[in-house]
Write a protein that binds this DNA or RNA. Sequence first.
DNA 1: GTCTATACCTAGATAGAC
DNA 2: GTCTATCTAGGTATAGAC
Lengths: 203, 203
Amino acid sequence: MAYRKTPAEIRRLEAAREHLIACATSVVAEVGWSQASVTAVADSAGIAAGSVYQHFPSKAALAVEVFRRAAGREVEVLGEVLHGPGDPVERLVRGVEVFARRALENRGLAYALLAAPAEPAVGAERLDFRRRYRALWAEVVREGMAGGQLPAQNGEITAAALTGAIGEVLVDPLGTPDEKATGELLTELTATALRCAGAAPAA
Amino acid sequence: MAYRKTPAEIRRLEAAREHLIACATSVVAEVGWSQASVTAVADSAGIAAGSVYQHFPSKAALAVEVFRRAAGREVEVLGEVLHGPGDPVERLVRGVEVFARRALENRGLAYALLAAPAEPAVGAERLDFRRRYRALWAEVVREGMAGGQLPAQNGEITAAALTGAIGEVLVDPLGTPDEKATGELLTELTATALRCAGAAPAA
DNA sequence: GTCTATACCTAGATAGAC
DNA sequence: GTCTATCTAGGTATAGAC
């Protein structure tokens, strides 16, 4: 037994950990937090249940890591769009499209992030996640107000409405998400978002 | 042992059952579904855990009954307001106020109905509940479009945005809900709802 | 280091005493 | 009919073999 781990060992361990997180994410997206037992996750990763504890001190720690990774990606992507080029209203529209499209493409994960029953530790992360999301929307709304593209309003509530509307569409799995319906949905959703923020409908 | 239960016996049993439901509702509103164990509910009702099973075949059955009662009341109240007198836009505003005010007055229960982690049986009820809520909003929006007070739009999505916005405000318990803040919140919320439905801001 | 087997805990449900 | 005590299942976490 060497005093230090060799670089190869470290890489291998890190890879195993990443693999475990990826598999756990898939399981959560498919069956939800409540059904994602340590056994189910370990099976999915091809390891024994006990081996999970080589990488995480508890199930809750693994769940939180899974949530943070997935939520962080979403916030990052939305942030890039909303901080990108274009006037605030254009960015708002693109943001709604990106948010909704990503969610529709991976409904299971979106549901897990936004709404699925979860243990308290994950619930706390979710509150933070929703707060960050709302902060991003609110920021764009404020810019729009400052630039005169949007009327005076409470950006936080507009942000909540945007998050809520998209989430609500996802929670109820109505019918098959075919291409045409998705397109119409996005059109209507962006129109609603624009009205919600008080932008001219034909923007 | 009589062949039939006496009327007095029936009344007493019914009363005990109602009391149990009422206590369970309080417990759920206070600590959420996940913490509302059979023991906790029974304690709250002043009976033994085992006695719960004299009234309900399972914990899930009790939980579903609690949910249905509370959700039914909310849908009924909102329905009365939205089907009441006045033009569609006026009713929409009153509906938002009623929905939000009731939710803010009993945040625990509102959270339990809208978002709190719950077992699958309750989750299924919740989907139905949200669907009924959305149907009510959508109906008013359709009336507004038919009467020319509202522009053409997808009423379902507007309905989702309304439900989502109010729910979002509740999920995040920001600060103390004092009277002044509540008033401002309601003003902003109705303004957002009107914009969302495309009504003239000063309605 | 990873697996197997198991200990342990929580919470729902039941049976028999009173 | 209600309570006390108990049974059982499911799932987290650990200990020791390989």
